[in-house]
């Protein structure tokens, strides 16, 4: 098997994550889509680390994970506080950008 299969898998996961962000309206699910995209990028990094024989890729993936954790914490806090204020977790209800 060629290692590029991993890359193809990562691409597919990334595309599904993108589509989730575009199509779903529940903010939490949208957020999970973002996480999926980050994970697919990690898979890419790990695979390239193996191809190039350099651990830097794995370290990068590690940093992505840590930053993603921080992002999740803040993002979910925002979702919770929006939910408290508006009783809804739908991204379409938050079209304050328009006004």
């Amino acid at each position: 098997m060629n290692l590029s299969n991993y890359l193809v898998l990562a691409s597919i996961l990334f595309a599904i994550g993108t589509a989730t962000v575009l199509l779903r309206r529940n903010a939490i699910i949208v957020f999970m889509g973002v996480e999926l995209m980050l994970n697919s990028a990690n898979l890419l990094l790990v695979t390239f680390a193996r191809i190039h024989g350099d651990l830097q890729g794995q370290v990068m993936a590690f940093f992505v994970m840590v930053v993603a954790a921080a992002e999740v914490v803040v993002g979910l806090a925002i979702i919770v506080s929006i939910f408290r204020a508006r009783r809804s977790a739908s991204v379409d209800d938050v079209n304050l950008l328009k006004n």
Partner: peptide
């Protein structure tokens, strides 16, 4: 510019 985050994402 309809204010919907998903449109902007698109």
């Amino acid at each position: 510019q309809n204010g919907y985050a998903r449109s902007y994402a698109a």
